[in-house]
Design a protein around this nucleic acid. Sequence first.
DNA 1: GCCATATAATGAGGTTCCTCATGAATATAA
DNA 2: TTATATTCATGAGGAACCTCATTATATGGC
Lengths: 142, 142
Amino acid sequence: MNITETEDLMRELGRVFLMAHRRIDRAMTACGASLARTKFLIYIARHEGHAHAAGIAELFDLAPRTVTEALDALERDGLITRQADPNDRRVKRLTITDEGYRAISATEPLRHELMDDICRYMTAEDKAGLIEGLRKMAAAME
Amino acid sequence: MNITETEDLMRELGRVFLMAHRRIDRAMTACGASLARTKFLIYIARHEGHAHAAGIAELFDLAPRTVTEALDALERDGLITRQADPNDRRVKRLTITDEGYRAISATEPLRHELMDDICRYMTAEDKAGLIEGLRKMAAAME
DNA sequence: GCCATATAATGAGGTTCCTCATGAATATAA
DNA sequence: TTATATTCATGAGGAACCTCATTATATGGC
């Protein structure tokens, strides 16, 4: 029935996402920076000099409070620094440290390797089909 | 290129899962019991009389500690009770209370409604294809 | 029967997310 | 120009996950 299929799909979606996320996150954490931290670092590196918390919250669809907290941890561990923005005294500018760059370069290749491994049984058409299906689900939620 | 497609797929998978999960979880929480709590309750209801923490950890692939903590919260809120098992004094038997049943019946229909809504643009073939693709990913991780 | 090993639950402590409330600074409108 | 609204970051507190260590109990090999 339709109901069962929907339920199977949702269950499978959760199961696969969680498996993949845990696998990648564990390996990366053991190697310098978790998935969550790495995505922040990459953003800050790309926006060199004018990255700020609100932009991260917006892009990754996170609550502002979540971002503040994650940045606290990154700053504590010496991967980023925060400075006051002279143009707008509400915002704090984020910059990545050498240690932060090291964390990115240590974990980036690993991340791709693991993603490729997870997708190793899939053809290009499989992937394209999957992406299309996922986009239909996303469309229903926007 | 292949690399980009893999990366797109993984990104889309995470985005869609998180969107769906948050949407369903928020609605259910507002209505009596979160997604995480409901799945525990359903398990306990189905295994009436001989549900225990290790079984939950096994089925949902969670760390035992996570289960203990979730059960603490369910017990605190009066949705379940824990009793010593006379046959094996290591285990605690779980039973669901009337309040627990109420939480399930309040949130179950809502959950299905939301899942159907999220899948509303997808045909049965779309869903089957998606499930198949997800299973290929799961297979690569087992 | 006794001991090594396995299993059940939990203590301690950490991460990544959330909501709701607050303080400070800026932008807008009357 | 003063009042109002918006935006930025964060305090307070909580949920759902994790690892590693610990205690109590069972169990299988000798």
